[in-house]
């Protein structure tokens, strides 16, 4: 397989993983009007959880998701109850500040427990590969992409094929009207934030398996996740997936055919262009707050 084609394959697979990490961010904004800057730190905290389960209790990171997803879900409940539901006005702006504070608190706690040393998650499927026309596709990327498709599919079903989802969508259309119809708006909000946080368990495990991390890694990660969500359209789950895959493929192609320096420039340059000429993202205003 040619170098370019190989880069495209790896770009698609890693794009899926980044989309999984970003989906919670877009869900929070779409439903709650909360720009959750702590999303990157949630991913890193989940990576540490997977690392700790494997390191100290010898639990395989994939199997460990049975534990880490509920733990992260509970963390989401606590954060929503403690901070997010207190925001009654100007939620978008205030949520940026509040979630940034949450990220700093979490970063401090994680730093205290694990220090600043870089960690990584090891398992047989991290280095194992599947040969595809001369390219060795790492199992971890295939697993990650599959996990992203499954989990994002489940979220889609939850939003569009369940009573909970119907209530949620009603709330997105008109929060006050939904409350007047008897929908428990507060409960839906809490559960949505907790689900968005719970999803970071899978993203964190994958992130920790594909690259070394420490608590500081959240800063770079959140900037990338925000770019993905901005390009896709804040609140658009499908947009996040398309933007993530598109960006990673483009970045990889530029890196192998031209220079890695320009691939990074492209990543941030395209964001500036989109913000100037299409601030609502690729999926436009009508889709901007649809989940």
């Amino acid at each position: 397989m040619s170098l370019v084609l190989g880069s495209v394959v790896l770009g698609i697979l890693s794009g899926g993983i980044y989309a999984l990490m970003a989906v919670g961010l877009t869900l929070s904004f779409g439903v709650l009007e909360v720009v959750n800057i702590a999303q990157g730190m949630f991913v890193i905290a989940a990576a540490y959880l997977s690392y700790a389960l494997q390191r100290y209790w010898h639990i395989d990171p994939l199997l460990g998701l049975v534990i880490t997803i509920p733990v992260m879900f509970l963390l989401g409940l606590v954060v929503e109850w403690s901070f997010i539901r207190r925001l009654k006005q100007d939620r978008v702006m205030l949520s940026i500040l509040v979630s940034w504070a949450v990220a700093l608190i979490l970063e401090g706690v994680v730093g205290l427990i694990f220090a600043d040393d870089f960690r990584s998650i090891h398992s047989w499927y991290v280095t194992a590969t599947v040969p595809v026309f001369g390219l060795y596709v790492p199992d971890i990327y295939l697993i990650g992409f599959a996990l992203a498709v499954v989990l994002m599919g489940l979220v889609y079903l939850l939003v569009y094929r369940s009573r909970f989802g119907a209530a949620l969508r009603a709330m997105v259309q008109n929060r006050e009207a939904a409350a007047l119809l008897g929908i428990d708006v507060q409960r839906i909000s809490t559960l949505t934030f907790a689900i968005a946080t719970g999803l970071t368990a899978a993203g964190g495990m994958l992130f920790g398996a594909i690259q070394a991390f420490n608590a500081d890694s959240n800063l770079d990660l959140i900037s990338r996740l925000l770019i993905i969500v901005i390009l896709g359209g804040m609140g658009s789950m499908g947009g996040a997936l398309v933007a993530s895959v598109g960006l990673l493929v483009a970045v990889n192609i530029i890196a192998v055919t031209w220079t890695p320096n320009w691939s990074t420039f492209f990543f941030f340059g395209i964001t500036i262009l989109v913000l100037v000429f299409r601030p609502q993202g690729f999926f436009g205003a009508p889709a901007a707050r649809k989940v």
Partner: peptide
């Protein structure tokens, strides 16, 4: 021979190019 930005988190493309 390539120079990559120090903050690049994902070095897969560079490594793939070298491997090939």
């Amino acid at each position: 021979y390539q120079v990559f930005p120090d903050e690049t988190p994902d070095l897969q493309p560079e490594a793939l190019a070298i491997a090939q």
